[in-house]
């Protein structure tokens, strides 16, 4: 394993989590390539090969739409997340791409102060050097939730 690549993926994951946890949702789509897939699903669907997503996006434009909708359209109570992201298990692919599997845990804090263990699971990522500017980005991030249950609603991305 190239230590530089490992370091770069650690850094990518850390910046990704911090961006969401800081509420900078407008910066979130930039972690993905223009044609990226971002799917939130359950371990049950994933293991049974069922394609349904809780969120199912097939382009960065769809992620920008989601942010715009969360900001301007949807009704949900004020909340924030705290991501705890584990160490990525990395497999090198062709031409500088990598596959990584990384555990995460998300604590949700409501405006009332109510704090709950909201989600845990793993990111199954395909990470590439984006040809447009050479930055590392997700060509695919499948968020596999260990539980099939989501409490109330999933507004902010995971």
């Amino acid at each position: 394993m190239l230590p530089e690549l490992q370091q770069a993926i650690l850094d990518l994951n850390a910046r990704y989590a911090q961006t969401i946890d800081d509420g900078r949702l407008e910066d979130w789509p930039a972690f993905f390539t223009e044609t990226a897939r971002y799917v939130v699903t359950t371990a049950e669907n994933f293991e049974r090969g069922l394609p349904l997503g809780i969120i199912y996006a097939t382009s960065r434009a769809m992620l920008r739409d989601r942010v715009r909708s969360l900001r301007e359209a949807n009704v949900y109570e004020a909340q924030r997340y705290r991501h705890i992201v584990g160490l990525p298990l990395i497999e090198l692919g062709a031409e500088g791409t990598a596959r990584a599997t990384t555990s995460f845990l998300v604590v949700r804090v409501m405006h009332t102060g109510e704090t709950s263990m909201f989600a845990c699971g793993c990111y199954r990522d395909h990470i590439v050097n984006d040809a447009s500017d050479g930055a590392l980005r997700f060509a695919e991030r499948i968020v596999v939730l260990d539980s099939r249950q989501v409490d109330t609603l999933l507004a902010l991305p995971l």
Binding site: T41, T42, E44, N45, L50, P51, L52, G53, I54, R148, Q149, V150, D151, T152, L153
Partner: peptide
């Protein structure tokens, strides 16, 4: 053809 399943806890 079932495409998938999930659940939502409604409070």
């Amino acid at each position: 053809r079932v495409l998938g399943t999930y659940s939502q806890i409604v409070p």
